[in-house]
Amino acid sequence: MPDTINAAPFARLAILGGFLLTAPLPALAQSNLGSGFGLEITPRGEQVLDLATGNTDLPQGGTVRDNKTGVTVVASFITIKPGDSLSAEGATLSTRLGGTLKAERLLYNQKTANITAKGKLSYSDNRIKNLVAQTLTVDTKTGAVTASGQVTASTPTLSAKQVVALPTKSVILLSGGASVKTFGKTVSGEQVLLNLVTGVAQTDAGAAALAPFAPYLK
């Protein structure tokens, strides 16, 4: 069994590979910590350091804020791999653009700046409500949201194998057995480009209209 140590009694502040790790502090003090760092992490309770791997677990979970992207994660369990990634269970993620993701499991890749959620999950923002999928990825650099695997949503009512939403576009792309209800009718096709402002759904969108979504399609 790897040696572990409860870090809480020994230090109130530790920097791990670009992560800022703080023990519970008053709200005002916490808000001042982390400026200039990529991630600010405030645990709810103890911090357990694995001396063999260098990883740190927060068994009672905590709150993570990416000061660069504005992403905030609140989770019931967090594991930090210094300089590599952060994983969380029972997580709720909020984006700077008003998106909310609730996920059973979540991984933040520090190198790619991508967040990937799996298991039971749902996502909502000002464009789409109750988006459910097997896997959902948030690109924190661009704000793009990609949902894959039996994707459904309540508003607009849709289903597809994959859905891509870009923050700079008023349209979303449904790909793979796509179907969406608009103007009281169901529009279906291999790919459907839905304009969220006008409600118009296209099954024959041109290459120029589809090009911005291409990097996110699998």
Rank of each mutant, 00 (worst) to 15 (best):
N114V: 10
L193P: 08
T137K: 08
Q162P: 01
G45A: 15
V138G: 02
T168I: 10
K218W: 01
T95I: 05
A160K: 02
L193A: 03
L173Y: 01
L49D: 02
A11C: 00
Y216V: 06
K185L: 13
N109Y: 06
T155V: 15
V171R: 15
T142R: 09
S154V: 09
T157R: 14
T4N: 11
D57P: 06
L51N: 13
L131N: 06
A211K: 13
K129L: 10
P43L: 15
N67A: 11
A117L: 02
L49N: 10
T137I: 09
T157V: 14
Q110L: 12
A91W: 02
A27V: 00
L16D: 05
T142N: 07
G34R: 09
V73T: 04
I15Q: 12
F213V: 08
G38Q: 15
L16S: 07
A23Q: 12
Q47Y: 10
L136Q: 00
D50Y: 06
Q191Y: 08
T92K: 15
S179E: 14
A7R: 12
D84M: 09
S159T: 15
I80K: 03
A208N: 06
L58P: 03
G99K: 05
D57Q: 13
G177F: 06
A211H: 03
L196S: 05
D3A: 12
L21C: 09
R44S: 14
G17A: 04
P215V: 08
G177I: 05
G18N: 00
K129F: 04
P43F: 12
E190P: 01
G206F: 00
Q162G: 02
A207M: 05
T72N: 08
G83R: 08
G149H: 03
G70P: 07
F213L: 07
L97G: 03
T203Q: 01
S124M: 08
G90L: 02
R96Q: 10
L121N: 11
L193N: 04
K185Q: 15
G99M: 06
T42E: 14
L58F: 09
K141C: 01
L107K: 10
K141Y: 10
P2K: 06
T137A: 05
A75M: 03
A214E: 13
T182W: 11
S175F: 07
P2V: 09
K129G: 05
Q110F: 08
L86V: 07
N114S: 10
V48I: 15
T69K: 01
N32H: 13
N114I: 11
D66N: 13
D84C: 02
G83H: 03
G149D: 01
R127P: 05
L174S: 03
